[in-house]
Each structure stands twice: as structure tokens, then as C-alpha cells.
């Protein structure tokens, strides 16, 4: 028993360094997913048929591939073919981020469409251009509505980030595996990894709830009635 505890404490600093890498992957992928997802949603709702169709194709493609397949395609295929020598970390963020953008775009699209045409008509009747109306009137409301659903993306990306172990990104699981391969003690080490993931998940969700509260406005109900 004591041996196990000693082992965990000796391994912990090494594994914990991976939390920063994991957090950077998650933050990076969330950001890529948010920016691309929002642009895709606006394009799909307000774009001409060709643009809407292209977005639908993009979404279909990225939602149809397993994470691991996408990672391998990017790592062994796409980037080497383009002659680009980029880090495994960069590929992890790109692959997870683009995949997330496909999911996020459909979340945002639903929220934009839920607003109804009245908001757009009122904005246009005041002389706003369509981009002005989207930016000042539609998106601030759609994003507020989307926040509860959007907070799914954090735990999904956090847990998905472990697959980047397959391309050797030095995140939590990769580091855990390295320890296991030296000590042959899988259970305590993987449980340590599991605990770290669960704590990170808890902390992140708490922050998202706080954000939701701060952005709270009468009319975007919290079900208090």
C-alpha cells in the first residue's frame, strides 16, 4: 500500500505537467471550434445556396469521422503531403478544433433560427445592413441561448483530448503510459489520470456555470417561474 502511494507521489509531478498540455489542447480546440463554428453557422443560415451547401458538406464530413481516424489522416497524410512540418500538438488542436466546429456550427445554427425573423426584420427596418443586424442583434441573443448546450463541448473535448496519445502529444494519458511502461503498475497510475480528468472537468463546468450567470438577462430564462 505504502509502495503504491510512494509511486503515485513520485509519478505525479511528471503526469501533472501533462495537464497544461491537455488544457492547451482543449482551449485551442474550443477556440478554433467556436470561431469556425460560428462562421459556419452564419454562412449556413444567411449564405447563398452554394455556401449553405458547402457548410452542410463540411459538417457531414467532420461529423462522420472518428477522432482517431481524423488525427491519423492529418498526422500521416494531410500535413506531410502539404510539405508542412508541424508539431503533433498543432495537429491535435487543428483536428479536434475542426471536428468540434462541425458540431458547434449546428448548435449555433439552431439558436440563430430559434430567434425567428422578427428580430432581423426590426433591425433591417431601422436601416441596419444584414451583417450589422447579425453582429449586433442576432448573435448576442443566439450565443446566450447556446451557452448551456455549448458547455457540452468542454467535457467532450477534454475527454477526447486523450486520443492525441496516439500521435504522441505529451498530455496526461501519454505521460501516464510512460510511467506504466517503466513501473508495470497500471492501476494506480491510470486511476491518477482518471482523477485528474475528473477534477479538470469539474473545475471547467463550474466556470461555465459562472459565465452563464454573468451573462444572464431577464427574458433568457433560468426557469425561475
Amino acid at each position: 500500500m505504502n509502495d503504491t502511494i510512494t509511486l503515485i507521489f513520485k509519478a505525479l509531478p511528471f503526469i501533472l505537467q501533462g495537464t497544461f498540455v491537455t488544457l492547451k489542447i482543449v482551449a485551442g480546440a474550443l477556440l478554433v471550434g467556436f470561431i469556425c463554428g460560428l462562421a459556419l453557422a452564419v454562412g449556413q443560415v444567411y449564405g447563398r445556396p452554394f455556401l449553405s451547401g458547402s457548410v452542410a458538406f463540411y459538417v457531414w464530413f467532420f461529423r462522420g469521422l472518428p477522432n482517431l481516424v481524423l488525427l491519423f489522416l492529418f498526422y500521416y497524410g494531410l500535413f506531410p503531403l502539404m510539405g508542412l512540418d508541424v508539431s503533433a500538438f498543432f495537429i491535435a488542436v487543428t483536428a479536434l478544433g475542426l471536428r468540434s466546429s462541425a458540431y458547434q456550427s449546428q448548435l449555433f445554427r439552431g439558436c440563430i433560427q430559434s430567434l425567428g425573423e422578427g428580430q432581423m426584420m426590426a433591425a433591417r427596418s431601422l436601416g441596419m445592413t444584414r451583417p450589422q443586424a447579425v453582429w449586433n442583434i442576432i448573435l448576442p441573443q443566439a450565443l446566450r441561448i447556446s451557452l448551456p448546450g455549448w458547455s457540452n463541448e468542454y467535457p467532450i473535448l477534454l475527454t477526447d483530448s486523450a486520443v492525441t496519445y496516439a500521435i504522441g502529444v505529451m498530455e496526461i494519458l501519454t505521460r501516464g503510459n510512460l510511467v506504466v511502461s517503466r513501473t508495470y503498475q497500471p492501476m494506480p497510475i491510470y486511476m491518477t489520470c482518471a482523477l485528474i480528468f475528473i477534477i479538470m472537468n469539474y473545475g471547467g463546468m463550474k466556470m461555465l456555470h459562472l459565465l452563464e450567470r454573468r451573462l444572464q438577462i431577464p427574458g433568457f430564462g433560468r426557469g425561475e417561474h
Binding site: 426584420m121 448576442p140 441573443q141
Partner: peptide
């Protein structure tokens, strides 16, 4: 408008 269409945010 009939339904006001005020900007709710």
C-alpha cells in the same frame, strides 16, 4: 410591428 420585436438582450 404587431409583436413589438424589441431586441430582447
Amino acid at each position: 410591428f404587431q409583436n413589438f420585436n424589441l431586441f430582447d438582450h
